[in-house]
Amino acid sequence: MPVPTSPPLPREARLFRNNRSQAIRIPVEFELPGDRALIRRDGDRLIIEPIKKPTNIRELLSAWREKEPFKPEDQFPDVEDKPVDPEDVF
């Protein structure tokens, strides 16, 4: 049975400028997987979450829907369904 680990204690991090953006050095114990993250504001707090890569088609479609909902004009156009030509299979 694994031993539960407690989350790391809060730690001060250094803020710095990178061109016109403010950046933060994230200590190794708070490291996020991947190379992209979501950031949002909650009052005075900034919440940073890793972007989870979809593992199946359902998660991929759900992620796309959350990013930008489909609009009727984005649907596929009507396509004429032509009859199939018979083929000689023997």
Rank of each mutant, 00 (worst) to 15 (best):
Ala63Gln: 15
Arg11His: 06
Leu38Arg: 11
Asp88Cys: 04
Pro77Met: 09
Pro8Tyr: 01
Arg14Thr: 02
Val79Tyr: 08
Arg20Ile: 01
Pro27Glu: 05
Arg20Asn: 08
Leu9Ala: 06
Phe76Glu: 08
Glu68Ser: 13
Ser21Thr: 02
Pro50Asp: 05
Pro8Asp: 00
Leu60Ser: 14
Asp74Phe: 10
Asp44His: 11
Arg41Tyr: 05
Arg20Trp: 02
Ala37Gly: 10
Glu87Val: 05
Glu73Ile: 09
Leu15Phe: 09
Glu68Thr: 07
Pro50Asn: 06
Arg14Asn: 06
Asp35Val: 05
Ile47Gly: 04
Pro7Met: 02
Phe90Arg: 01
Lys71Gly: 05
Glu49Trp: 05
Pro33His: 09
Leu46Met: 10
Pro54Thr: 04
Pro2Cys: 04
Arg25Gln: 14
Ile39Gln: 13
Arg20Gln: 06
Val28Trp: 12
Pro27His: 04
Pro72Tyr: 10
Thr5Cys: 09
Leu46Thr: 03
Phe90Val: 00
Gln75Asp: 13
Ala23Gln: 09
Pro2Ile: 01
Gly43Thr: 01
Glu73Ser: 12
Asp81Gln: 13
Pro7His: 02
Asn18Trp: 02
Arg58Tyr: 15
Leu38Phe: 14
Arg25Lys: 11
Asn19Tyr: 07
Ile57Val: 11
Pro69Gly: 11
Pro86Ile: 02
Leu32Gly: 05
Ala23Cys: 15
Ile57Ser: 15
Arg65Glu: 15
Trp64Phe: 13
Leu61Thr: 08
Met1His: 05
Glu49Asp: 13
Pro2Tyr: 01
Met1Glu: 03
Lys67Tyr: 15
Pro33Phe: 08
Ser62His: 12
Pro50Met: 06
Pro7Arg: 01
Pro10His: 02
Gly43Gln: 07
Arg65Gly: 15
Lys82Ala: 10
Pro10Cys: 02
Arg58Glu: 10
Thr55Tyr: 12
Pro86Ala: 11
Asn56Gly: 08
Ala23Asn: 09
Ala13Trp: 01
Pro77Leu: 09
Pro33Tyr: 07
Glu80Phe: 09
Arg36Asn: 05
Gly43Pro: 01
Arg11Cys: 06
Asp85Leu: 09
Pro10Ala: 02
Leu9Ser: 03
Leu60Glu: 14
Gly34Val: 00
Ile51Met: 12
Pro8Glu: 01
Leu38Glu: 13
Ala63Ser: 13
Arg25His: 15
Glu12Asp: 09
Phe30Tyr: 14
Asp78Phe: 11
Gln22Lys: 09
Gln75Thr: 13
Pro77Val: 06
Arg17Asn: 14
Glu29Asp: 11
Gly34Phe: 03
Ser21Val: 00
Ile26Lys: 00
Leu9Pro: 00
Phe30Glu: 06
Gly34Met: 04
Leu15Glu: 05
Lys67Ala: 10
Val28Ile: 14
Val79Asn: 08
Arg58His: 11
Lys67Trp: 12
Arg14Asp: 04
Leu60Arg: 14
Phe70Ala: 15
Pro50Ile: 00
Asp44Val: 08
Lys52Ile: 12
Arg45Trp: 11
Val3Ser: 10
